[in-house]
Simulated assay, not measured.
Amino acid sequence: MAEPGVDASLDASIDDDASDRRLGECVRMLRQRLGLSIQELGRRTGLSIGMISQVERGLATPSIRTLRLLGLALQVPISFFFEERPTGPAPRYIVRRAQRRLLRLTRSGVLKESLAPDAPGRMEMYELTLSPGGSSGADFVKHQGEKAGYVLAGTLRLWLDHEAHLLEAGDTFRFPSTVPHMFDNPTEAPTRIVWITVPSTEA
């Protein structure tokens, strides 16, 4: 008979694989809709052809940085990559907790929950949960727009223009997205953050 923890770990691994496949299919669909080759998408994002190919085949879990670059190149907000909303009617301007859409980047130690309604709008708002060691990725990213956030629990290490800032519960931040940035959780406890992104209005 299997040990109690083994089945749970196996189920989690299966869920992770299914999530990676769904995300990869979404990226491939968007790329083909725009008539882009993997090579052209790589040129637009700065990502390697091998990385894009692995993401599309569900063989790699992209970081938040990678998803942001893909979203910009494929002309969709990062919320486009989230799982479908749970069944049931959803108010136009309200998001109930049970109706949040999720993005599981388990191998990166990140869970994103969309807090913004599906109605058209520029502002993106999420609740991020970072597992111990979870991060946005290994490299800095910058783009047009603005970002802000509020640390709900735990510790966030926010890197802005290569300078590290340790934020605790109750701390807030706001910065232009043109500032090179990345973030991670350097502690042994989960970190929860409300994260807001306002993309640029420039074409």
Rank of each mutant, 00 (worst) to 15 (best):
M1R: 13
E3K: 11
P4T: 11
V6A: 13
D7G: 10
L10G: 09
L10R: 14
D11R: 11
I14D: 14
D16M: 09
R21P: 02
R22G: 05
G24K: 02
R28E: 10
L30K: 13
Q32C: 05
R33F: 06
L36Y: 15
Q39I: 11
E40N: 07
R43P: 01
L47R: 05
S48I: 09
M51S: 15
I52E: 08
S53L: 01
V55Y: 06
R57H: 06
R57D: 04
A60S: 11
T61D: 02
T61G: 02
R65K: 08
L67V: 08
L67G: 07
R68G: 12
L69M: 11
L69W: 03
L72I: 08
L72P: 03
A73H: 07
A73P: 03
Q75G: 06
V76W: 02
P77D: 13
F80H: 14
F81Y: 06
E83K: 07
R85N: 07
R85S: 11
T87R: 02
T87H: 12
G88M: 15
A90W: 06
R92V: 15
Y93W: 14
V95E: 01
V95C: 10
A98R: 11
A98D: 15
R101W: 09
L102Y: 02
L103E: 01
R104T: 03
T106S: 11
T106D: 05
S108F: 00
D118A: 07
P120A: 08
P120N: 01
R122Y: 09
M123E: 04
M125D: 00
M125H: 01
M125E: 00
T129E: 05
S131Y: 06
S136I: 01
H143W: 10
H143T: 03
Q144P: 04
G145D: 12
G145I: 03
E146I: 03
A148T: 06
A148E: 04
Y150F: 12
Y150W: 07
V151D: 00
G154A: 10
L156R: 01
H162Y: 13
H162I: 08
H165Q: 13
G170T: 14
T172L: 09
T172Y: 04
T172E: 13
R174T: 07
P176S: 08
S177L: 02
P180Q: 04
D184T: 02
N185C: 03
N185K: 00
P186T: 08
A189W: 04
A189E: 15
P190M: 05
V198S: 09
V198A: 08
P199A: 07
P199M: 11
T201Q: 05
E202S: 10
